[in-house]
Design a protein around this nucleic acid. Structure first.
Lengths: 149, 149
DNA sequence: TTGATTATTGCAAATCATTTGCATTTTTTG
DNA sequence: CAAAAAATGCAAATGATTTGCAATAATCAA
């Protein structure tokens, strides 16, 4: 059990939630695979955990700030949040769905803090998602037709 | 028919899509009601349009850049996009779900453009969502555990 | 304008993700 | 370790979104 998992356990304890096998497995899977869709998470854990429990675990983890949902424009994906990863944002290719992490930028954070305050929002978390075309897809764009999914 | 609707028609024509009653109705409803959920949109138009057609219309509008999905942390909502409204962002109250519009900020846009370029993403659109507590909800919050981390 | 061609719609049924109730199992607590 | 509380698995229910297809509406060329 590594340091991150110790933190997980601390958070669960602090919140009076049980430390169970499914919760550990979900956590480890997220640790191991990084950004994953719910589908994939369910698939990766299905040998050990029921679908309903994965949902319940993720809901709990989200409440406790362990996991955050990232909206990619199709469906959201899941990854460990602030306590486990450095704060960052995402750029998403509209065409192939690749997600590119964007490192924290001090100026950006300042402006966001300022805007939040101005909007009267406290205690904020935020997400910036840039959607466009990655280099690879930029080339193969001639027909912006439907047909894909 | 106002100028915005003329633009709608131009976009549809440019994309070789038919100008149909359902599409006009969806457009006008979005114009009239602003930010709405899919549910509400379906409800507002159900006297004239079938659910499936609302979905199909929104999908098309999104492809053509007429509509954008805004992820609020629960479900997304829909509103007219750039060509029809000034560019802006959103701050969302986690508790009551109120959405506060944030005016365009030049510095913010610059940084985002810079980050997009750096990430190798072109042709970008983006969304910034700040999630926190609005003033009203801030007060009535003592029970939510956020003290870990 | 009209009739032929093509696109779009409405409807019903299907699918897919997510949630719920409840009996059973696991974890916690003293 | 036993009792109490919390969480799980399973199956069934829900809810949102999508699909196939026949009927209708929009477009286009003459």
């Amino acid at each position: 059990m590594d340091a991150a998992e110790q933190l997980l356990i601390k958070i669960l304890k602090d919140n009076k939630a049980s430390i169970t096998k499914p919760r550990r497995i979900v956590f480890r899977t997220l640790q191991k695979y990084g950004l994953v869709s719910m589908n994939r998470l369910i698939d990766l854990t299905k040998a050990h955990i029921d679908t309903a429990s994965v949902y319940r675990t993720i809901e709990l983890f989200e409440q406790f700030g362990i996991v955050q949902k990232i909206y990619t424009g199709w469906k959201y994906k899941l990854e460990l949040s602030g306590a486990f990863l450095p704060h960052h944002h995402h750029a998403i290719c509209k065409k192939c769905g690749i997600v590119i992490a964007i490192q924290e930028n001090e100026d950006l954070e300042k402006i966001i803090q300022y805007l939040a305050t101005k909007a009267g929002i406290t205690n904020q978390t935020h997400s910036l998602e840039i959607r466009g075309l990655c280099k690879k897809c930029e080339k193969s764009i001639n027909s912006l037709s439907r047909k894909n999914s």
